[in-house]
């Protein structure tokens, strides 16, 4: 029996995490697949940690991904990548922004990017740290960072085995800022995309 694909989408409330996750779900429906997108609403959307569980494919039942069973993580903030690491399967793929947003708690110091990258690499995970926010700014709007990450993740993970680029583009079209998002997506997700563009730490 074929199993589904488990994707954790992580970040800080307000970054566009729900949109990213919804696009994956919409694209799966366009492919005629089953999909579950378990969102976090309410209080945590106000600048707190947000995790969305996305499950695509066959034999998916429950909305939450079990610990240790995520195949892919797409994360919009490096400390949040670290926070969700327990969901990852050994051999899973991580695509994370290099961005670090310090928590707004007086006296609390953020971690250093090199320490986060080092710790994650030491666990033997395939981790792609890219400067998606910087790239989004270069493209014209920092809010498109989620689609930069999505495009990159599509290219380097098993998402492309389940979802066609056509469906992914159709799903992205439903978001506000259509043209820029499509540009961001095609820059990374197409077969001849140049991934080097957004690489920070790899």
């Amino acid at each position: 029996m074929k199993e589904g694909l488990n994707i954790i989408v992580a970040g800080v409330g307000g970054q566009g995490i729900l949109s990213l996750a919804r696009v994956l779900g919409e694209a799966a429906v366009l492919e005629g697949l089953e999909a579950l997108v378990a969102e976090t609403h309410g209080l945590s959307q106000r600048g707190g940690s947000v995790i969305v569980h996305v499950r695509i494919g066959e034999n998916i039942e429950a909305p939450l991904i079990p610990v240790g069973e995520a195949d892919i993580m797409i994360s919009m903030e490096a400390m949040e990548t670290l926070r969700s690491i327990g969901y990852m399967r050994r051999g899973g793929v991580i695509v994370s922004d290099t961005l670090i947003i310090p928590p707004s708690i007086p006296g609390v110091k953020p971690l250093k990017l090199e320490d986060i990258v080092g710790a994650i690499k030491s666990a033997g995970l395939e981790a792609h740290f890219i400067s998606a926010s910087e790239e989004a700014k270069r493209l014209g709007d920092f809010r498109t960072a989620n689609i930069v990450l999505l495009g990159y993740a599509y290219k380097v993970s098993k998402i492309k085995d389940l979802i066609s680029l056509h469906s992914l583009m159709k799903a992205v079209e439903t978001l506000p800022g259509r043209d820029l998002n499509l540009k961001a997506l095609t820059l990374y997700a197409t077969p001849d995309a140049n991934l080097e563009r957004a690489r920070g730490w790899v």
């Binding site: 707190g48 079990p66 990852m88 708690i105």
Partner: peptide, 20 residues
């Protein structure tokens, strides 16, 4: 017997929700 989840040597500071 599920595999033990990945544990790393560092953990991130808490990030509670804040006023925008």
């Amino acid at each position: 017997r599920p595999e033990a989840p990945i544990k790393l040597s560092i953990t991130p500071p808490p990030r509670p929700p804040v006023l925008c």
